[in-house]
Structures are given as C-alpha cells and as structure tokens.
Design a protein around this nucleic acid. Structure first.
Lengths: 227, 227
DNA sequence: CGAGTTTTTGAAGGACATCAACGTCTGTGG
DNA sequence: CCACAGACGTTGATGTCCTTCAAAAACTCG
C-alpha cells in the first residue's frame, strides 16, 4: 500500500472541535490510561474476531468500521471522524473490523471487562454511554437509509451527513474512495458514480479535486432528497 | 384497532428467561424506580419526537421500534422480545417510535438526563451499558442484512434470529405480521410472502398456524443462507 | 355466515447490478 | 520534467431481482 498525502489539509482543528458526540462535551481523558497511535491509509486498526481490550477515539483522519460476508460482500456501518468514539463492544471479541481510510491518529483507551470502567470512573463512563448512544442513533438513521431510500436519496443523505459532521455548510470532503461509499450505502461503485454525475447534471452539486470534494450547490433540494 | 388474542401462549417463562442481553445476567431492578405497564396490540408505546424520560424492558410480548419517512415509508430497526431493553436514547427526545406488536407488558424505568443514572447506580448503569451494546451489535448485523443480503438471505437470517432469540431450535413464532417483517427487512410484503413460499417449495421451512409459525425443516441450509 | 383484514399469487415494469471498456489521476523512474 | 504503470473513477449496454399494480384466496372475528 503506497503512501498517500492527506488531501484534507484544510480541515481545520476548529472544525474538528465541533464534532464531539452529538452536542455534548467532548470525551475527555479518563482516569483510565490512554495513549496515542497512528495508522497509515488502508491499515487495519482491529479485525473482526480479535480480542477487544481497548477502544478508540479519533483524533484526526477518517476511520471506517464494517463487516465482511463470507463471499466478500462488505458493509461499512460507519465512518468515524475526529471526536468520534469507535470500537466499543459488548463481548470480548470484536464483531467488526476497523481500518484507516487515510492517515489516522487515535487515542487508545483500555477497558476492563464489559463496562467495568463505568464503575472505575463514573464520569468517564457517562461520557462513554453518551458516545455509544450517539453511535446507536446514527445506526438507526443508517438502517432507514439502507432499507428504504433510493440511490439518489442515499447519496444526498450521505453528502449532507458528511458536510454536517465536518461542520462545513457548503461542501463535503470525501476522504474515502467510491468503493467505501458504495459499501456504506449498500450500492455498487457504478451506481455511486452515476448518481453523482446525475446530481451534477441536475445542478445539485459540483465536483472538484478529482471527485474528492463535493460542493453542495443546492442544499435545499438536497435536504428534500434526504426524505 | 381490534383486540387480538396472543398467539404465543406457548412461549414459556423458561424460554423468556434465556433471552437477557447476550449471555449476561438479566437487567435486575435498579435503585431507580420502576413500574409496569401493559399495551394492547398496535398501541403506541412512545413516538418519535416525544420527550424521553423513561426507557423500557420487555416483560412479555413483542415490541417493534422504527422510523417513518415523510412519505410513509417505514423502517423497523428491531423487534424486542422479553428481556430486551429499548427506548434508551442519547438526546432528550425519542428519535424513533415504539409500538406493541401483540399484547405487551413492559417494565418502565425513569432516567434523569442523559446517562446520569450511571452515577446514581453504577451497577445498574453497567447492566444498562451492556444492554445498549447488545442493541448496537444487533444494529450492526442488521445493517449488513439491509445493505448486502438478497431477499432469500434476509428471510433466512430473520427466521434464524427469531428462533434463536426465542431459544427455540426448530421453529420461529412470528408475532408480527408480514408488513412488519417487510419493513424490518427492507422488502415489500409481496416479496416476503413469495420468499416464504419459495422456501417451502425448496423444503427449507414449513408453515403452520396460518403462516404465523415457521418450522425450520432444514436448518443447515438456512444457516448457509445467512451468509 | 359475512365483512374486513391479511396473505398469497400473477403479470408487468423499473431501479439497480453486472459485465465491459474507456478515461483520469497519482506517484515513480527514466 | 515528462512518460509510464497501476489504481481509481466514469460511462455504456444489458440483465435481473425486486417492486408495483392488480386480483383472488385465506383468515379473523363479530
């Protein structure tokens, strides 16, 4: 895997700061030990089936988490941006895989057995609970998208979500490639591509930066498409 | 909405007892007050947008939780059976709706603001965390189903899941009607019906009790279909 | 038994997938 | 600095799984 210099240098720390768990104070460092790690583009952070002794908070970059079916079909259940917590699970083993979409820095938190840290540090535990609830909210929204939206609606919802979570009103910076988007939205890369070009033709968006930047030209129309 | 006598009288308390949050001790009564309520078939337990001061544990019956799009499309994100916790959310408002599929009894738990009960009763909080994590696990699995599985695979996965969670090795008792199944699996009622009849023709299942009981004739084949 | 609801079955259409080829971008090495 | 190779993305033609529209069958309950 070759290196790949980050496209998103303009993602300011200020923008990151706005993206804690849904309007709540950012997850602060706990009594429990935490350290940092960096991953290169494409690197695996943890894999399905591995022991699950730590969980993570994204400091910078983008992480994808998801599952693989036996025949290679993949579902990316979420992208995690700076401030997001991922890798928290009920059992002793990871039930999904996490990989770095681009160069990623994470904070690593140890956990005892399932939820015992809640007792160890209740304040931290509460923040954790909030982070998890926000993950759950997002999962619910995504199930509606996967089960009931059209390709056009999926794409519109995705673009608006990325822009929102980056606190950018007018553009969505796509750190991930088309394959990742397709596997997140339950589509194929071809449909993702076609849908984007259709949106350009309809004046909803414009593409820049080799298709990695999506400028939201008509947010009102896009919002309607989110259904 | 007419009354509807419960089909599932044979769901024994013993079977229920096996279905706490994923292999963990059942959520016991907390220091925090709890009471009981009963809902008739079709009754709303809470609605999207309502204030969210309590959450629930199913004592008996089946609950569906889900969301509605503006044009009436619906996604049921989960069915909750006895022992399952539902209605826990990050924000002050419910982000989804809960309704009784059949006659349902629930335990009602007050909650202060987001997660403050973790501090009030850490042991209970930990159990709660576990319950939530199990919901999150299930949500992840369901996203794979919605995004990447065929109608046949969806149906097979659903039937196996229902049977498992009822701790019944050979049959799935479907308390919900076809519309609910369709809205859970991201299909139409017609496709649900057709898929079931196809499974009967292929010897995978047999239907009984006016299509409400599914006998899993060929579990090995069904398991393969879960992909 | 009969009205209303739910489920099944049938025929036709459409949205997205698949298969295939071409275009574009990136980083490397001459 | 430019050319090249490989990865990534777009576009086109065709196919198919599931949906939609329609109607009949089965079931529930008064």
């Amino acid at each position: 895997m070759q290196t790949f210099n980050a496209i998103h240098a303009h993602r300011t720390p200020a923008a990151f700061a706005m993206r804690g768990a849904a309007n709540l104070p950012p997850l602060c460092e706990p009594a429990i030990s935490s350290s940092r790690r960096t991953f290169e583009r494409g690197e695996e952070i943890f894999a399905e089936g591995e022991a699950c002794n730590v969980f993570y908070k994204v400091i910078s970059g983008t992480v994808r988490t998801g599952k693989l079916l036996s025949d290679g079909r993949r579902q990316i259940d979420a992208f995690h941006f700076a401030g997001d917590v991922f890798g928290l699970e009920g059992g002793a083993l990871h039930r999904f895989t996490a990989e770095a979409v681009d160069k990623v820095t994470v904070a690593v938190f140890r956990r005892g057995s399932a939820g015992s840290l809640v007792k160890a540090d209740p304040v931290f535990g509460e923040q954790l609970m909030t982070a998890m609830l926000s993950n759950l909210d997002r999962a619910h929204d995504h199930m509606v998208l996967l089960g009931r939206k059209t390709a056009l609606e999926k794409m519109a919802s995705f673009l608006m979500d990325v822009a929102d979570r980056h606190a950018d009103v007018e553009r969505a910076e796509l750190a991930m490639q088309r394959t990742d988007i397709a596997d997140h939205l339950g589509l194929t890369i071809e449909t993702v591509s076609r849908t984007l070009t259709q949106m350009v033709k309809d004046g909803l968006i414009r593409l820049a930066n080799a298709g990695r930047t999506v400028i939201l030209s008509d947010k009102a129309a896009l919002r309607l498409l989110c259904a």
